[in-house]
């Protein structure tokens, strides 16, 4: 189901989760369920759709497409993520057509983390297109033509998503890009992880003027070490010290409970300002139902 079906509904609040494909192949033995599919099980009936990352952090893994197909077969609604880092415009277009042909109704287009952040540091970064150009090209395919203007058969139909980072300084530069993404064809946005109330408020106040649905993006903070790690290694995201201290205030056994409470509190505080929430659990999908319950949000009109 296309996500804009939900966004278009009056008061539609769209909940999405996220899984990362495994570093390896899907076993031929169907009794062995890949970890990303196991993680997705906890989201079943709780979210409208699940993002499937594309070689996230530039670490080589199973393709987003294969994982999406696997999730679809298990009854989930995947969001196919596609980045500019590893493919030229021929491969990007071909993959969009292939993804649609394999049943994907939702696609999220990103620049992609630079290869320096990943595990193949000496490879050639592609970046033939940027995310704005990718979005425009995807919209073109939907309209029946490829990027050079050739007509295509049976144009695909999918919802176009994109990402925006509220933490970016100067924010205006990020908002200019957001506007370009909208003009290019973006139908909804997921934000990068935000933890700071003031930063998010400042962003959403300006972003809401564009009139496009925005999902608040949150990454579940699992430990103080993770917060410190993210501040040091994850680009574009800052975890405030209060968050690090709070998750560190309980012992390991109670961290999931605490994390759910913290994430829910943040979502609850901001949910009235957005059209949805995108939860990036980094493996802790099992606490997503608890987060949603505590944040007092649920999906409506989706078969579980």
């Amino acid at each position: 189901m296309k996500l804009n079906t939900y966004f278009d509904k009056i008061g539609g609040f769209v909940i999405t989760g996220e899984v990362g494909p495994i570093k390896g192949a899907i076993p031929r033995d169907r009794a062995v369920v890949p970890r990303c599919a196991q993680e997705a099980e906890f989201l079943h009936g709780r979210v409208h759709a699940i993002n499937v990352t594309d070689n996230q952090s530039a670490v080589m893994r199973l393709g987003s497409m294969a994982a999406c197909v696997g999730l679809k077969a298990r009854g989930h609604e995947p969001i196919y993520q596609l980045t500019c880092r590893d493919r030229n415009r021929i491969a990007l277009q071909s993959d969009i057509l292939t993804a649609y042909s394999l049943g994907m109704d939702n696609m999220l287009f990103l620049t992609g983390d630079h290869i320096r952040l990943g595990d193949h540091k000496t490879t050639k970064p592609v970046f033939d297109l940027d995310s704005v150009q990718l979005i425009k090209m995807a919209k073109g395919l939907r309209e029946g033509h490829d990027i050079v203007g050739n007509e295509i058969e049976n144009p695909p139909d999918f919802t176009i998503g994109a990402v925006v980072n509220p933490n970016f300084v100067p924010l205006d530069l990020q908002l200019m890009k957001m506007k370009k993404k909208i003009d290019a064809g973006t139908e909804f946005f997921q934000t990068q992880a935000v933890y700071d109330d003031k930063i998010f408020d400042e962003f959403i106040k300006k972003a809401e003027k564009f009139g496009k649905p925005v999902q608040l993006g949150v990454v579940i903070l699992k430990s103080p070490q993770m917060g410190t790690f993210m501040n040091k290694n994850v680009s574009g995201i800052t975890v405030p010290q209060e968050w690090i201290d709070e998750i560190g205030s309980v012992n390991k056994a109670d961290r999931k409970k605490k994390a759910a409470e913290m994430m829910a509190g943040f979502i609850k505080k901001h949910k009235s300002k957005v059209q949805g929430v995108h939860i990036m659990p980094l493996g802790w999908t099992d606490i997503v139902p608890d987060i949603l319950e505590q944040a007092e949000i649920k999906i409506n009109g989706v078969e579980g």
């Binding site: 620049t111 983390d113 630079h114 940027d130 995310s131 704005v132 150009q133 990402v163 925006v164 980072n165 933490n167 970016f168 300084v169 530069l173 990020q174 200019m176 890009k177 370009k180 990068q192 680009s235 574009g236 800052t238």
Partner: peptide
């Protein structure tokens, strides 16, 4: 070519 990615800090 169309502006910054989201990665800068």
């Amino acid at each position: 070519l169309n502006g910054a990615c989201g990665g800068a800090e």
